[in-house]
């Protein structure tokens, strides 16, 4: 199969890669670019572990083709912290033990950040529905919801 050249921006860096026509963005990120923070939990868009931002929209990268990202702006978990400074969501997740195994965490952090950008003061119910596309099997979601709210409050007062 012939590979196709794609130019995109990932976490602010212009990035070029070659990929097959049937290759998902998730596979490109993980296998071609070494960005393994996004995880494949299902490959069918049901678990949200591969969540990334594409042109400001939350997407499952397993459902996006690599070639579709031509000219797009992609944000992944690897770009969430600024140097050594964690994003408030990352720091609060850590402080409030909102992760156990951590494999769903990158996707949940990306999704939660997307929510707070749209809605800086969500209700618990709004957080729960927004994150309904991100499966977590360890925590029962309780500490995740609370951590998102703590971070939201902190970000509002910042």
């Amino acid at each position: 199969m012939k590979t196709i050249p794609v130019e995109t921006t990932i976490n602010g860096d212009s990035t070029e890669f070659l990929c097959n026509a049937d290759e998902s963005l998730l596979d490109v990120l993980r296998d071609r670019l070494g960005l393994t923070g996004a995880k494949e939990g299902c490959g069918t868009g049901d678990c949200g572990a591969c969540s990334v931002m594409m042109n400001g929209r939350l997407v499952c990268s397993c459902l996006v083709l690599g070639v579709e990202t031509q000219g797009a702006e992609i944000e992944t978990i690897e770009g969430m912290a600024k140097g050594e400074e964690l994003h408030p969501l990352q720091r609060v997740f850590l402080e409030e033990a909102a992760l156990q195994c951590g494999v769903c965490t990158p996707g949940i952090l990306i999704a939660a950040k997307a929510l707070l950008e749209k809605n800086p003061d969500p209700t618990d119910t709004e957080v729960r529905y927004w994150l309904a596309g991100n499966l977590c099997r360890c925590t029962g979601y309780d500490k995740i919801i609370k951590a998102v709210q703590t971070a939201a409050a902190e970000m509002r007062s910042a």
């Binding site: 393994t36 923070g37 690897e78 990352q90 850590l94 965490t105």
Partner: peptide, 20 residues
């Protein structure tokens, strides 16, 4: 309620799981 030692790797996507 101390911070877990593997926490930063897990909130930044650095932690290496089976497929990584």
């Amino acid at each position: 309620r101390v911070l877990r030692p593997d926490g930063i790797d897990k909130v930044t996507g650095k932690a290496a799981y089976g497929a990584d």
